[in-house]
Design a protein around this nucleic acid. Structure first.
Lengths: 245, 245
DNA sequence: GCGGTCCGATTGTCCGGACATACGGATTGA
DNA sequence: TCAATCCGTATGTCCGGACAATCGGACCGC
């Protein structure tokens, strides 16, 4: 019939993962067309020499990604819509780079300050204790696009201005072994103050898109808190949502 | 030790689900404190008279929700941060009602119009074919908060103005058996036009928060497309993100 | 004191089977 | 012709076990 699936038992990569990846690229390439049935799990397991739980685990991971839908008594089929990426904890830098925008970063401030009440609460540190403060301007095509002010708890990372201009904050964190886990995020809008307008090349009172985010690692420790403002003409948040079963 | 876990084998609700729910409320109530180990899976299974796969399935569902973290060789522990709800495909109506805001809805337009190119593309119907158009104003405490313009493909739902004012669009869809699956969403900002300002009780040029969303059911069919504008002083998008493993 | 090695603990992966449950079409009956 | 019932099919749930991979601490040697 259709698919050319196989698994390598010698590989250290889990069998269910090998299978799910092959299915994913088949869907991506259109080898598995939207709406088509995937064939029952039992037979698929037999064909690959795998057990049914393993096959189910592979399928389940794709269901969680929104690529497949299971129907009891019917089968598993490929979802029609072009689901691309569900919402991830993405970094602005990575997003822009993926879009081929060649982002440039200008570090405005890189210092240590006493934590305000708001920052202290977000980072779970004592008020007035030392925290890093980084202010950056993100530019694309030589034009300012976002102004970002971030706070980090002390001792987590030594923030080198040169590195900050070459890459993104999240990438620096990952590089020192911090595993990002979750983030709490608020998106809103407001009119630009004179200072903000000046920094972003807008007029005072112009609408700005605002984002506030606290990021946590896998132990639940707050590793970053930031308030960002974006020029709405040059940036908007776009993402895919999945309904929680 | 601490927890009072038990399962009812006579219940039609799956065992793993019973367990995961009990664990979730225990975490919510603080009976399981952040950072505490959950006890190993084998022993937990034995204590409950369950098999290890069942216990693992329960734990895994909470890991996916971001409440627990597994560490090989260490154990499973409760995440520190106050994870509330990860981002869901939520309806504005439900959000407000959950917040105790008593939302009111005023239907401005409820008619059938030919699809524009944009709407036709979003709903995957032919251009100029008939689609439902609904314009609504959402109010809290008697003040306008959001203006919503939605398009629906024909034959999906008979849109009763009275029902639309009593509840939300998503709830009506679910009531007729539509299973919401995913949505593609864009959040931005812009200055209010004179019309928009008038509708929302703002001044012309005031910043507005905008959201555009296309929603799909579990077969991948587009069931709704809408453009909403919010008063940023009264509403912002707040949500929790999880890093995809 | 310091570093490397060993080892227990715990989760990760995988198997093969069993029965329950729900969907959809075919069959049957009015 | 239409509606209710039956039944095959596929997924949903659950079991009990096996071995591998990894983490962290204890132990040991230098």
């Amino acid at each position: 019939m259709s698919l050319d699936l196989s698994v390598d038992r010698g590989s250290p990569v889990p069998l269910y993962f090998q299978l799910s990846q092959q299915l994913e690229v088949a869907i991506e390439h259109g080898a598995l067309t939207p709406g088509s049935l995937l064939g029952n799990e039992i037979e698929l397991a037999a064909r690959l020499g795998l057990s049914r739980p393993t096959v189910r685990q592979a399928i389940q991971s794709l269901v969680d990604k929104g690529l497949l839908v299971r129907r009891r008594g019917v089968g598993t089929q490929v979802v029609h819509s072009k689901v691309r990426r569900p919402l991830e904890l993405s970094s602005l830098f990575d997003d822009l780079e993926a879009a081929g925008q060649r982002p440039a970063t200008k570090v405005l401030v890189n210092t240590v300050v006493p934590a305000t009440a708001e920052v202290a609460a977000a980072l779970s540190v004592a008020e007035d204790s030392d925290v890093h403060r980084v202010e950056r301007l993100r530019l694309t095509h030589g034009e300012p696009m976002a102004y970002m002010c971030n706070y980090l708890p002390p001792g987590l990372l030594d923030l080198d201005t040169g590195q900050l201009e070459a890459t993104g904050l999240y990438r620096l964190m990952r590089a020192v072994g911090i595993t990002l886990h979750s983030a709490r995020q608020t998106i809103g809008a407001r009119a630009a103050t004179a200072d903000e307008a000046d920094r972003l090349g807008e007029d005072e009172g112009a609408p700005l898109l605002t984002m506030e985010r606290a990021t946590f690692d896998d132990t639940g420790r707050a590793v970053e808190f930031g308030t960002h403002t974006y020029r709405p003409s040059r940036y908007s948040f776009e993402f895919q949502l999945l309904v929680r079963s």
